[in-house]
Amino acid sequence: MEVAKRSKKRRYLTKGQLVLLGMTLPSILLITVFCYLPMSGWIYSFFDYRIGYKLSNSEFVGLANFRYAFGDTYVLKVIGNTLIISFLGMLNLPIACAIAILLSEVRFSKFRRAVQTVITLPNFISWVIVYSIAFALFSTDGLITSLIASITGQAPTATLLSNPATAKLFMVGLNIWKSAGYSSIIFFASITGIDPELYDAAKVDGAGRWHQIKFITVPSLLPTLMVLAIIQVGFILNNGFEQFYCFVNPVIRDQIEVLDYYVYRLGMLQNDVPLSTAVSMCKTFVSVVLVFSVNKLAKKINGQSVI
């Protein structure tokens, strides 16, 4: 056994191994170039770099950009916006869960399927289209704005698109509209997976619908809910860029500016490459730590690793 192992080690790669490597390495190269290579750009965060100049001519400033990022009150506000919007966005999960539980109690299977089809649809359109629709419905002369005005009998002072007081909630609401139906599919699957004998036994014992939901369905869905919630915590700093790029305007910017949009504005519009890079770096670092610790937690709860 030992001899065989040693002689195998000494031998060159077999033909099979070569073929496998030949099939593997192009993909690995792609990952290296498009995912890991950009990390080399992190070096800019330590220099006073301007676009168009050479890095070698830029002054090394150490951690000055990081210190600035953490001391700046506006950055703190952006982090606050990010966290608030992300946490409110987690309402997505209980809503999706409730949709799945209640819809699976409806008796008409065609109706069930139609509802399921339609509530999943918004997930598949881009934020540009959501923006276009929202613009048509919620702007000053939009359908819903005028509907609300005719119900309340007074012209609204600000539309939802440019009302700083409700801007965060509006963003969260749109996000839930877009994704809750899609998230509910996972819960539907879990419900189908519940052993029907449990329900039969409960019925024999005289449990009504409410008790069946409370003591069978909800406990069966809890692990799934926990794992999904944990995953969302891992991605708490990522709100996405596209939604905020579309909906941002000067009136509500300081209410809905999140990290993903902020690094864009800093880097691409204000050309402050070092500061933008420094903020991205911190964001990635925190995200990775969160994802891996959250993965440990999920393992404990579910006995299964998320990653």
């Binding site: 995912c35 750009g41 880097g267 691409m268 991205s280 964001k283 990635t284 995200s287 990653i307």
Partner: peptide, 13 residues
């Protein structure tokens, strides 16, 4: 889970 960030990504591309 690794995201180099928008600007480093842009400069690399």
């Amino acid at each position: 889970y690794i995201n180099a960030g928008l600007i480093p990504w842009y400069l690399t591309m």
